[in-house]
Design a protein around this nucleic acid. Structure first.
Lengths: 132, 132
DNA sequence: TTACGCTTTGTTATAATATAACATTTTTAA
DNA sequence: TTAAAAATGTTATATTATAACAAAGCGTAA
């Protein structure tokens, strides 16, 4: 077997669980502090789990915040096409799953005809609550 | 006057110049090392200049790389709508200026009707050279 | 079974990225 | 001309991330 693609190690499960429970994106070191009681003691353990979970599409990294969210898209096993809306005020992050948008972007070609196998889009604005 | 919107301070000019000359995105600390002979000695000086240049739309931050590129779009004085293509192999970054794309994204509304005033899009793939 | 390779894990140390806090200088505008 | 504001300089430190290597666990084939 070259790779176990559907099995999570203990550390990976622990990290995934805490990200899934969170309502906001979590930072790597805040994850570290939260999981220290469960035996994860050092940054590399957290970062390894994060890297793996990202590759599996279980979580995504919000690049503009260096923070991590669970993928809301149940069927997402790869993470090559992501879009988020981010509130400038309360920092709430929502994953956008809009078939038209993803189709548009997956098919996008620039002037040179270059095609892409991956993209990440981050929208910023005020969420409904903060707009009031 | 509340803000000088079209004037760059000495440090800002120095930092902008080095980013404009570069062919690849530059990291903050590599900028710092390059400008130390010009009297910029400490990180905050670089980061302040970067922040200002970003606000003015003179440069953009490539979030997935923590690196900075000059805006190629001459008329760009604000930086609320950015799109880049990034080569996974050689790390080359190109700013995409595609009117259809920017129009599409500027007008994008999610399911709830929310509109955004800013976005950043990063495409990944292989550039023409690396595809060969 | 055992021993080999591979993956995961643990651990220490350190690299890389970014900002806080405050002193000083320069610029602005009353 | 001088007080306020903005920009700059400086030191220290916070935050984010990885290198490097040792040890443990696990599958598998001899």
């Amino acid at each position: 077997m070259t790779q176990k693609i559907d099995f999570l190690s203990k550390n990976q499960q622990i990290v995934l669980e805490i990200i899934e429970k969170a309502k906001e994106p979590l930072k790597a070191y805040s994850i570290l502090f939260s999981v220290q009681k469960k035996g994860i003691k050092a940054p590399p353990q957290v970062y390894r789990a994060l890297d793996r979970l990202i590759k599996l599409g279980k979580i995504h990294k919000i690049e503009s915040k260096n923070a991590f969210v669970a993928c809301k898209n149940d069927s997402c096993t790869i993470s090559n096409a992501t879009a988020f809306s981010i509130c400038d005020n309360c920092e709430m992050v929502t994953e956008i799953s809009n078939p038209k948008l993803s189709k548009y972007l997956a098919n996008f070609q620039d002037e040179t005809g270059m095609r892409y196998n991956k993209y990440n889009l981050e929208f910023f604005g005020l969420c409904k609550k903060c707009k009031k």
